[in-house]
Design a protein around this nucleic acid. Structure first.
Lengths: 195, 195
DNA sequence: ACGTTTCATCAACCCAGGTTAATTTCGACG
DNA sequence: CGTCGAAATTAACCTGGGTTGATGAAACGT
């Protein structure tokens, strides 16, 4: 899974000027538990994740952490705050597994979009998809209860369960690890596993 | 504030083919409390609000309502679900004041984007802005407590306070009207108003 | 001026999840 | 094996918001 493929798929056509853009790519690599960028930092880069798992998270005033989203291989991410030239990241990116991929300055992408309208299409489809995903997430947070959010993860992304510690999963669902353990307790009491 | 101005501002250039698009516009008008579209309905239209105030909201399983966002004059909105041809609206749009504006089939917009890459730029900027706003909202919901969210509305959109009933404001903040009344009570007890 | 309706407030009770800390489970490794 | 450390579970207590229903206070029409 290469970045070029992802971009050309979004564009719906070959990108003849891809090489111009590719010059701005920088490979990155990190171990589990490292921070790619931090809340409050100026960091106008976008990341393409070729391998591994990353969480984007907020830190609250009281110091507790809230996971905003999880990214898997083949996905792009960046702090949108970084699009406004003066703004800082609203959240941090922390690796949950060893990762590798490449990153590029957001400016490189903005330039491409100004020069070549095919890249506008890439941008449009990317942001459209992003808005769509955020809408789903908003629905989960506003409408579903914690047990319902847990069930949904089980149903819709069982492969994530394998890759996440229960504590990370709890933070993603929006509750504490203790609360998730209680929910699991009630759940298995209600429908005991046939062994 | 006309739709054409908004679109040309996003495009950064005059839209020579605007008339083609304008043929698909339909004016709309509604009284306070009416529903423009409903959760679960197929309704592939985008709305441009020239006057009035609209809330987008979810209804939960138990029947309680959660306000997702509020839209004021000059803003565009639609259910993104509607972009996928088969999908239905994930939420409802209800007017909080008498409204007027115009709507158009999302298909008309998608066609424009395929044909004319300037419209891609409009789409890109629109979705980019949408994603940006959703990111702020997500931050409010994940990181701020209910009293903090109330303070933030007071600070950042005092004009909304005038236009909303307290019950609507509570639903927007993500709590019940009773809870908001308590928060106000505590707040004014802490810092009594000098009269 | 009077009822009607709507909206905010208040009181009482309930409960899910947060917090803290003790305990258990389990895997890694000597 | 045994032990060490990390992660999950359990218990006890606390708190904020939900829920219901009663009371007050404006706004409105007649």
């Amino acid at each position: 899974m290469r970045l070029r493929d992802v971009l050309e798929h979004l564009a719906g056509a070959p990108l003849t000027d891809y090489e111009d853009f590719a010059r701005r790519l920088e490979p990155f690599r990190a171990n589990k538990g490292e921070t790619l960028f931090s809340q409050g930092q100026r960091h106008p880069y976008a990341y393409f994740l070729r391998q591994g798992l990353v969480k984007l998270c907020y830190v609250t005033h009281s110091g507790t952490e809230r996971t905003k989203s999880l990214l898997q291989e083949g996905q792009l991410f960046a702090s949108l705050g970084a699009l406004r030239p003066e703004a800082v990241c609203g959240f941090s990116a922390v690796t949950l597994e060893p990762v590798e991929g490449e990153r590029f300055p957001l400016g490189a992408f903005l330039e491409r979009m100004e020069k070549n309208l095919l890249w506008e299409r890439i941008g449009r489809k990317f942001f459209q998809e992003l808005a769509f995903r955020k809408e789903r997430r908003e629905y989960q947070l506003l409408v579903l209860s914690a047990p319902e959010r847990y069930e949904q993860v089980i149903q819709e992304c069982p492969e994530l369960l394998q890759r996440l510690s229960q504590a990370e999963l709890a933070r993603f669902i929006g509750i504490t690890p203790v609360a998730l353990s209680r929910i699991r307790g009630r759940r298995s009491r209600r429908s005991p596993v046939p062994e």
